[in-house]
Design a binder for these strands. Structure first.
Length: 462
RNA sequence: UCCGGCUUAGCUCAGCGGUAGAGCAAUCGGCUGUUAACCGAUUGGUCGCCUGUUCGAAUCAGGCAGCCGGAGCCA
């Protein structure tokens, strides 16, 4: 029995092969005088293989009906192509048609807009651009695991359903089995969650960090990589309701170890994808973001700039640049500020650290100055905030004080506080939006186009 | 959520008060070792939805919805 060979493997062949079996989907068919050219793609790579289907095939009349989108199995010889655009092609000895696509197949042999392709997200991976994007997504995921695994980090599966709302940040999706049209009520008329599945209110996670910290304080270095949910009504090219987040956490580490890890990880992942997805990145460089490869090489070849928040404010104040929101110590950084620093001033990734405590989360470690915390954000040209992280507050008393300052209740964080009661250690970590790294690496400008089936406000299709 | 823009054939768009157009796709035919092939013909539309102005609305006004871009929130 002849086994199927993937097209990427055939095109990488050193020499012709007498008999091969190719399976895939038809991108286009062109008739010549006594034969037909069929371009087939099986998703193994960007490039198609050209099939020569001669009129001597016993089902040639059927072959001439093959349309874009049809599926085939082709047996034949891999030979050097007489045409100029490809090294090899397959001269078919047998063409088996699995299924002919009717003439309403939505993908035409032309460029479609991203907006249109989003309406057929179930078919768009069959296009060059989206096939490339999702191959890169797969390789980039693997790069993440490879990076952490090689450094001795353990992969921890933190829960997706949770009762705590982590940093109190962001709207959350509620998880319930109650009948929302007729929920049980307590005597005072409130919904009686004691009768809900978990016996209390439950939600989808916005971050695995607090759970991750517990495991870092046991296994040492850990990371999470999984889906995360935000019910924010955010309508931007950089936000989705469901996205994937990477959250490493290191015991016995400070803010500087954290920044080193972030920079190493970003560079490792970029380098990995440039090695494994060269064809796909070349397509993005040509059609999606001209200059992409130069940009990525620039990131690899330079250290990330590292400054404090106070220095960042100072740079902006002295820049003479006109900002809509005036840079002053104490303000939360606006998109325009982040873009200025990364794109205009440094022209490479910048890590800003030591933010005023008022604008950052309660768990970030208070610096000795008493007014800033050991938080760091990695700002990247074109993307903005790629990573947000911090050294965690390991001192029990300080942490409790910060919880109270933020109007939160320490009784909700008893299990979290245990890690500071029993063998507390300095530790640090960060969160990275996986889709944002996808956007950085591919040059694709909309988060909806780097997730297979995007979930955004008013949109849960497929 | 706020601000702005868009919504006309399968796709991309033009038309901007007088009753619907182009390119591409599709279909049919021709030509051809082609490269999103080429040439010719044909098919194809309650102009997002509702209300109003007008003799007459794709075109003007109001409302609604969806999409896109920017901002906020953040990853």
């Amino acid at each position: 029995m002849l086994k199927r060979t993937k097209i990427a493997q055939l095109l990488a062949s050193e020499q012709p092969i007498a008999e091969v079996l190719v399976k895939g989907w038809v991108r286009t068919r062109r008739d010549a005088k006594d034969f037909s050219f069929i371009e087939v793609n099986d998703g193994s790579g960007l490039k198609n293989i050209q099939i020569i289907a001669n009129n001597t095939l016993n089902n040639y009349e059927e072959v001439k009906k093959i349309t874009t989108g049809s599926s085939l199995a082709v047996k034949g010889a891999l030979v050097e192509s007489k045409g100029g655009n490809q090294k090899f092609e397959v001269v078919a000895s047998d063409v088996e048609i699995y299924s002919l696509a009717p003439d309403d197949f939505p993908l035409q042999k032309k460029k479609h807009t991203d907006e249109y392709l989003r309406t057929i997200a179930h078919l768009r991976p069959r296009t060059n651009k989206y096939g490339a994007a999702f191959r890169v997504r797969s390789e980039l995921s693997y790069a993440i695991h490879k990076f952490f695994n090689e450094r001795g980090f353990r992969y921890v599966h933190t829960p997706i359903i949770t009762a705590s709302d982590c940093e109190g940040a962001g709207e959350m999706f509620q998880v319930t089995t109650l009948d929302i049209n007729n929920p049980p009520r307590t005597k005072d008329g409130k919904v009686d969650y004691s009768q809900d599945f978990f016996g209390k209110e439950a939600r989808l996670t916005v971050s695995g960090q607090l759970n991750g910290e517990m495991f870092a304080c046991a296994l040492g270095d850990i990371y999470t990589f999984g889906p995360t949910f935000r019910a924010e009504n955010s309508n931007t090219t950089r936000h989705a309701a469901e996205f994937w987040m990477i959250e490493p956490e290191m015991a016995f580490a400070d803010i500087h170890d954290d920044m080193d890890l972030a920079e190493d990880m970003v560079k490792f992942c970029i380098r990995y994808v440039m090695n494994t997805c060269a064809d796909d990145l070349a397509l993005f460089d040509k059609y999606v973001e001209p200059g992409l490869l130069d940009k990525l090489n620039n990131i690899l070849n330079h250290g990330f700039a590292r400054i404090t928040y106070a220095e960042a404010i100072d740079i902006m104040q002295k820049s003479g640049h006109k900002f809509e929101y005036k840079p002053e110590f104490g303000i939360d950084m606006q998109t325009e500020h982040e873009r200025f620093l990364a794109e205009q001033h440094f022209k490479r990734p910048v890590i800003v650290r030591d933010y005023p405590k008022e604008i950052k989360a309660f768990y970030m470690r208070l610096n000795d100055d008493g007014r800033t915390v050991a938080a760091m954000d990695v700002l990247v040209p074109g993307i903005g905030e790629l990573i947000g992280g911090s050294q965690r507050e390991e001192r029990y008393d300080v942490l409790v004080k910060r919880i109270r300052e933020n109007g939160m209740h320490e009784k909700d964080y008893e299990w979290y506080l245990d890690s500071r009661r029993y063998g507390s250690v300095p530790h640090a970590g960060f969160g990275l939006g996986f889709e944002r790294m996808m956007m950085l690496v591919t040059g694709i400008g909309n988060i909806r186009d780097v997730i297979p089936f995007p979930r955004t406000p008013k949109s849960v299709n497929f």
